[in-house]
């Protein structure tokens, strides 16, 4: 007997990215990188990217953490690879709005809508956003202004 709320949170998409994370590991040649830690639990997500001409050519992540943070990092790398810096930031902002319960264009989120149930768990919203904070910080270090 599975609790229906837990099931909504731990959707198969999230569990799949947690069990088989995409784009995990260091990225040789990265020119943008940042690490964000969650001081309350000690979890850590690092993001490394190659940014050229305002475009995220490649991106990978490192670190350990809960399923929400790991799946979010994995999905994020899928979503932003090949995107412009500006588009990546807009997607991150859309996810933040979704989890804060603010109005948002759902179409902009695609696969990331899997995290919608996280909004009901205030203690876990930070887990889902941690990789995006790391990406945002990494992009600030790349020296490539948003187009």
């Amino acid at each position: 007997m599975i609790d229906p709320r837990s099931e909504a949170l731990y959707q198969e998409t999230i569990l799949d990215h947690y069990r088989r994370p995409r784009n995990k590991g260091e990225l040789p040649g990265a020119n943008a990188r940042a690490t964000v830690t969650n001081p309350t639990c000690g979890d850590e997500i690092g993001v490394e990217a190659i940014v050229e001409g305002g475009m995220i050519r490649d991106v990978r992540f490192t670190g350990q953490g809960c399923s929400i943070a790991q799946a979010s990092a994995s999905m994020m790398t899928d979503v932003v690879r090949g995107a412009t810096v500006g588009a990546a930031r807009r997607t991150g902002e859309a996810l933040r709005r979704l989890l804060a319960g603010e109005p948002v264009t759902r179409d902009a989120l695609g696969e990331l809508l899997a995290f919608e149930a996280v909004a009901r768990y205030p203690a876990r919203v930070g887990c889902a956003l941690m990789p995006w904070r790391a990406l945002d910080r990494a992009l600030q270090t790349s020296g490539n202004p948003a187009p």
Binding site: D3, R5, S6, L9, Y10, T40, C41, G42, D43, G65, C66, S67, I68, Y121, A123, R124, C127
Partner: peptide
């Protein structure tokens, strides 16, 4: 295979309060 935070969330829904973290 289960991070303590995930465990705490699932337990919380069953009314069980535990601490997860360092």
């Amino acid at each position: 295979g289960i991070h303590p935070h995930d465990l705490a969330t699932i337990l919380d829904e069953r009314g069980v309060c535990i601490r997860a973290g360092h």
